[in-house]
Amino acid sequence: MRQIAIYGKGGIGKSTISSNLSMALRERGLNVMQIGCDPKRDSTRVLTKGRFIPTVLDTYRKFHDSGKKDTDISLDDIVFRSDEGIYCVEAGGPKPGVGCAGRGVLTALQKLKNLDAFGAYKIDFAIYDVLGDVVCGGFAMPMREGFSKEIYIIISGEFMALYAANNICEAIKTFASRSKIGLGGVICNSRNVYGEREIAEEFSRRIGSKLIYFVPRDNIVQDAEINKKTVIEYAPKSNQADIYRDMARCVLENDRSDIPKPLTMEELEDLVQSYNKGL
């Protein structure tokens, strides 16, 4: 079984990439579980036709309120199977303004491990969709504790997306020896920035990794999400759907596990500026 974690700046399109990757892998006959590690609990929304499934933390609270024990929680209470056969989990978080938002990630991953979720459902591919560029505390759990050995960073050609990616590289480097994790590569989710592919390729090269895939921007992505579907389900014969399928193939065939070399702030700024001269 392969376990991958998707990291990147907030709003960069991690859930879109994760959900379409899940669908593309499922089309290949693989058993896939997508685990949303964001208190907003919206990672799996397009996989479940717009339904916000109960989170692991919500389930804990519900059981506590009814006098039941944590040990009474079963996989059926926290894992939900989509119509297409993808197993969906949302970690959840505390009520706004109360407690640590990373607690849901820790609780969810530990519960899935204790209940042997991957074995019970014969999972081939687990995908962790992790909150924004926060790599401390609970949100670092997929990499810190080695739940996921394979990390992918989603970027665009925008400076702040690269800045966040660079910080994530620092975290991977920190946990690499302890948790036996590595950077599988970089995926660029295009924002139509000038020189974007070249920036993405050069950034990937400089940190000692590789641009695994460049996903072009297409309005059909927003159309699909408005209709509460992945692109692969909403427009299966579209060019964008084939792009996600090809991205999944590249991930399947990828065997890289690099320890990244983060750039200095000056190097990062110089990189972006070098492709925007005269603009």
Rank of each mutant, 00 (worst) to 15 (best):
P39S: 04
I73F: 07
P39Q: 00
P236S: 09
G102T: 00
G278T: 08
L131D: 05
C250Q: 15
L57Q: 08
L131V: 10
Y7L: 09
S209E: 01
M1W: 09
G185W: 03
K68F: 04
Y275L: 07
E201A: 10
T55P: 13
E201V: 13
Q110R: 08
L112Y: 12
G208T: 13
E90W: 06
T59Y: 01
Y244G: 12
V79G: 02
G195I: 04
S43C: 07
I187D: 01
Y234N: 08
K180N: 15
F175C: 03
G185T: 11
Q240S: 06
R197C: 01
E269P: 05
D65A: 15
G185R: 03
V272F: 00
L57N: 01
E201D: 11
I73E: 06
D38I: 06
A224H: 08
G92F: 06
A140F: 03
L57G: 00
M141E: 15
R28Q: 15
G93R: 02
T71A: 14
E233K: 14
K180G: 13
G50H: 10
A91H: 02
T71Y: 04
F63M: 11
V56N: 12
E201F: 09
G146S: 08
C136D: 01
G278C: 05
D76A: 12
I17T: 01
E202Q: 05
I181M: 05
R217I: 03
E90F: 05
T59K: 07
D58E: 15
D72H: 05
E201Y: 09
L106V: 15
G85N: 06
K14E: 02
F125A: 10
K62S: 13
S179L: 04
E84S: 14
C37P: 12
Y121Q: 03
S209F: 11
D133V: 04
Y213C: 02
S82T: 04
K149I: 04
D129F: 09
R256E: 13
A101I: 10
G99Y: 05
G185A: 06
F52T: 15
L211M: 11
M143D: 07
P236A: 04
Y234S: 01
R2E: 12
A140M: 09
E27G: 10
R81Q: 10
F80T: 11
V89D: 01
D223I: 01
G85R: 00
F203P: 06
G93H: 01
D76F: 00
K49D: 15
L109F: 00
K122V: 06
A171E: 03
K229S: 14
F125E: 15
L109I: 05
T174M: 14
Q222C: 14
D70T: 11
F147V: 10
S274W: 08
N276Y: 08
G104S: 02
D223P: 11
L21Q: 11
Y87D: 08
T71N: 05
G50L: 11
A91C: 10
I220M: 13
